[in-house]
């Protein structure tokens, strides 16, 4: 398999070999994702793969299209073109971009978790934190109050949320705690795919470090495939195994996270990396 963007800036093709040692198949495969708003092209021809247990980072400045890609993967933003598959029995061989409303909702509730930069996008700010997490389970059909309470507690505990604050609504919580509630809600159904949109942007540095640690532990303990979007290269270096660099709606470079950050190939990536160091 030759990646269409596996091309160096000097146009010497650097075709990487297909995987030979990795037995896994990618959980997520997306090809040719495209999104336009009127005459503006936000995302054009983006391809990506994520393996089980792997974290893919997407970096780029505001307006690069990275968050739009994430919202397309969450099926909350319809794509104009593209092919998006998850290697799950119930959706085998299906382009998820063509799902009807009912199945799209089912897929999002059961298999995709998302954490937004802005907590109010993912949470009801006036409902208790436990209730926010339980809501996810109710949407998936769970009705027993005892099960809901236990499952919500377990999920919040896994996200390292202090359980004595279970009944507090997110609006009374700090930014770091709000992100933990979002994370608990995201992982409550044990999804195959976790999407993180600037999950620690805006948090104090020390709080950010604690949230990143929680994410690393979760990744180690469950083999969730994760896509994290951030403009913060430190976050990407900490979380991501591989990185895509986006600019103007396109992927300009991809590689192992340390390679992209320590030996960037594309002029734009070099500029981005050196501006941060």
């Amino acid at each position: 398999m030759l990646r269409p963007y596996g091309i160096r800036y000097d146009m010497t093709p650097t075709y990487f070999d297909p995987p030979r040692l990795t037995a896994d198949r990618p959980l997520l495969t997306a090809w040719g994702l495209r999104k336009t708003y009127g005459r503006v092209t936000a995302v054009s021809g983006v391809d990506l793969e994520v393996y089980p247990g792997e974290t893919l980072g997407i970096v780029g400045e505001s307006g690069s299209g990275k968050s739009t890609v994430l919202r397309m993967l969450n099926l909350e933003e319809p794509a104009n073109a593209g092919d998006y598959r998850l290697n799950l029995a119930a959706y085998a061989g299906e382009n998820l971009l063509g799902l009807d409303r009912y199945r799209r909702r089912e897929l999002r509730v059961t298999q995709i978790g998302i954490v937004y930069q802005q907590p109010h996008m993912g949470l009801r700010m006036r409902v208790s934190s436990g209730g926010n997490v339980a809501e996810r389970l109710i949407m998936a059909g769970e009705r027993s109050f005892a099960t809901l309470r236990t499952a919500a507690r377990d999920s919040l505990a896994e996200s390292e949320f202090p359980l004595d604050r279970l009944d507090d609504p997110p609006r009374l919580l700090s930014g770091g705690m709000q992100q933990r509630v979002q994370l608990a809600k995201a992982i409550a159904m044990r999804p195959a795919l976790l999407l993180l949109d600037e999950p620690t942007t805006g948090l104090d540095v020390s709080i950010q470090a604690l949230v990143l640690d929680t994410l690393l532990r979760l990744r180690r303990e469950r083999r969730i495939a994760t896509v994290v979007v951030s403009h913060d290269l430190g976050v990407i270096r900490t979380l991501a195994d591989r990185v895509l660099v986006m600019r103007g709606g396109q992927v300009v470079e991809h590689g192992l996270a340390d390679q992209v950050l320590d030996d960037p190939q594309h002029p734009y990536t070099q500029q981005l990396v050196h501006a941060k160091l």
Binding site: F16, D17, T22, D24, D241, G255
Partner: peptide, 9 residues
Amino acid sequence: RAAEVDIAL
């Protein structure tokens, strides 16, 4: 030139 996933492995 090994695939990135193989290097990660």
